[in-house]
């Protein structure tokens, strides 16, 4: 009972923050709302017994990506001397497409067999199991993602840095 209340709380938080992102115009507020949304999502992960995922979500999204984005906002909007205003467009076709997509998804879900599956409780030390799986079954993707991170690090650094040759000014 307690769990369910917490779950509804998290869901409510994230829906609200998503609405804030959608409707407000200030980019900085959007980033903060995204932070709320991500933290509540990590709580939902924890309730779904994916503790490692929840911690990763907190660390990487809330800690890493959000900071990156806030830096991005600072670097791009300040220089222009404008406020953090963000305009929007395409509302009518966008809402049409997304609501139709939502309807399609809901109908598909209603017709599918996924909702009928019952919960078999996973027991035991989940984080330990994650580690074992990561080093045995998922060893190859793990290595590959390491390489991907390295490449992305170099790529991002090279792209953002302004060498004499690559800068256009």
């Amino acid at each position: 009972m307690m769990q369910e209340v917490i779950l509804y709380l998290f869901i409510g938080f994230s829906i609200m923050s998503v609405l804030v992102i959608l409707l407000n115009r200030n980019v900085f507020y959007s980033a903060l709302a995204l932070l709320t949304c991500l933290i509540s999502l990590s709580g939902i992960y924890g309730l779904l017994q994916a503790e490692f995922l929840a911690v990763t979500q907190l660390l990487i999204y809330a800690g890493g990506v959000l900071v990156l984005m806030i830096f991005g906002i600072m670097l791009t909007n300040r220089i222009a001397g404008k406020s953090f205003e963000s305009k929007s467009h395409n509302w009518i076709p966008g809402i049409l497409v997304t609501t139709s997509l939502l309807v399609v998804l809901v109908i598909t879900f209603q017709n599918s067999s996924i909702k009928a599956t019952q919960n078999e409780l996973n027991t035991g030390n989940h984080i330990r199991n994650v580690g074992i799986e990561l080093m045995s079954t998922y060893a190859a993707p793990f290595e590959v993602s390491g390489v991907l991170l390295l490449v992305c690090l170099i790529g991002a650094a090279l792209t953002a840095s302004s060498f004499k040759k690559s800068s256009h000014e």
């Binding site: 467009h89 395409n90 076709p93 966008g94 497409v97 997304t98 139709s100 997509l101 399609v104 598909t108």
Partner: peptide, 20 residues
């Protein structure tokens, strides 16, 4: 680019409906 994304998505929705 956002219009392109929008039309691509619309196409995708139509495609899913048509397939399913």
């Amino acid at each position: 680019i956002q219009s392109y994304l929008l039309w691509a998505m619309a196409g995708l929705v139509i495609f899913i409906v048509w397939i399913l």
